[in-house]
């Protein structure tokens, strides 16, 4: 009997305490796992330095974050979506349909993508985009004919590379990193190999544009015979795969590599070593800008949101000597222009 009393009083207690929460007073952020560390460093500093509570940061990937961002306007939606790629026109449209019209785009800096392998594994020290395309692309051109990819070792692809089994761990399609990998490595390598022209000549489509798209799609298709593995999780998962396979090559963000230099080594791409200088100058070919997107409609409603945005891109944080650069972000040479745009609330057209 006392048991029944006890549990019913617990329920009653719950019902009594069910008073409503006051309006949300925390900035709410979700999105790219590449931007996540920076966002959480800024969130922490924001909590330390202002009277506002520490913003809530969630992960999930650029596309997932933007999807949540475009769910609508209101207190129960997120204020900021982190993204490791630019928002797509189709996403802007979906946003607009849900009433999210005034979107502020903020570029926080750049990130490099590195090809890393076990520190005492085979000597993967230099790659060209064409090597990667020939090793991982699903469609290859041999003597003018389109064939599947049959190479099984890196030396098959390029005699200068080690005679090691091809085993690549690349980011899955929900990651923004994947798009950069496709654009700047696979597509570039495909063009260099002359395969793009062959695909274009054989492409089907009503217009030139359709043909071009079809050919590019063939270029960026990745082989599915197990030599290339999509990693949908975080970089730690890629690292675990590399640890388990001495021949493994993984695609990482520069910041992640810099935190794990004791177990990983990187390869140069087109002869350029990845570091903050080569990325800032644009020499290193595989880099991409990092963004966050903010709802203008929330600026007046969520306390601290404007200050948070200003804070994020302030010289003290996102500048070359700030904590973000220390963690691995390559700071944007045009930071001043971004600061100006954010303080005036410039939106996407």
């Amino acid at each position: 009997m006392s048991f029944v009393k006890m549990s019913s009083s617990a329920i009653a207690m719950l019902a009594l305490s069910a008073t409503t929460l006051s309006a949300r007073d925390q900035v709410s952020i979700a999105g790219s796992s590449t931007v996540l560390p920076y966002a959480s460093i800024v969130a922490e500093a924001f909590g330390e330095n202002t009277d506002f509570p520490t913003p809530v940061v969630e992960s999930g990937g650029s596309s997932a974050g933007l999807k949540r961002f475009c769910e609508g306007v209101g207190e129960n939606t997120i204020d900021i979506a982190n993204s490791s790629r630019k928002i797509k026109a189709s996403e802007v449209e979906i946003c607009a349909q849900a009433g999210v019209t005034d979107i502020i785009e903020v570029r926080i800096g750049y990130d490099g993508i590195v090809f890393a392998s076990q520190i005492d594994g085979p000597a993967f020290t230099a790659f060209e985009p064409i090597d990667i395309y020939k090793a991982l692309g699903a469609n290859q051109v041999v003597d003018g004919q389109i064939v599947g990819n049959t190479s099984s070792t890196w030396s098959d692809v390029n005699p200068d590379l080690p005679n090691a089994e091809i085993a690549a761990f690349i980011p899955g399609t929900k990651h923004g990193t994947r798009e950069v990998f496709e654009d700047k490595v696979l597509l570039a390598g495909c063009e260099e190999a002359g395969a793009l022209d062959v695909f274009l000549a054989n492409a089907e489509g009503a217009t030139d544009k359709d043909k071009h798209n079809a050919a590019e799609k063939q270029c960026i298709a990745v082989r599915t015979d197990g030599k290339s593995v999509d990693i949908d999780g975080d970089y730690t998962e890629t690292l675990a795969s590399i640890n388990a396979n001495p021949n493994g090559i993984g695609v990482f963000g520069l910041a992640f590599y810099e935190n794990n230099t004791d177990v990983l080594k990187t390869a140069t791409v087109s002869g350029i070593e990845a570091n903050t200088d080569t990325i800032a100058s644009g020499e290193y070919p595989v880099s991409r800008p990092l963004y966050f997107y903010m709802k203008k409609a929330h600026l007046a409603v969520i306390p601290g949101l404007q200050l948070f945005a200003d804070f994020f891109i302030s010289d003290d944080l996102a500048g070359p000597d700030g904590p973000l650069a220390e963690y691995g972000l390559v700071s944007d040479p045009e930071l001043a222009a971004t600061q100006e745009a954010v303080s005036t609330g410039q939106t996407l057209k």
Partner: peptide, 22 residues
């Protein structure tokens, strides 16, 4: 249901926040 926060969970200051805060 989003109970994995990367950052921002902190000690609650009311019962409502204890149950419904991030």
């Amino acid at each position: 249901i989003g109970l994995v926060l990367a950052q921002g969970a902190s000690a609650p200051d009311s019962i409502a926040e204890f149950f419904a805060g991030p």
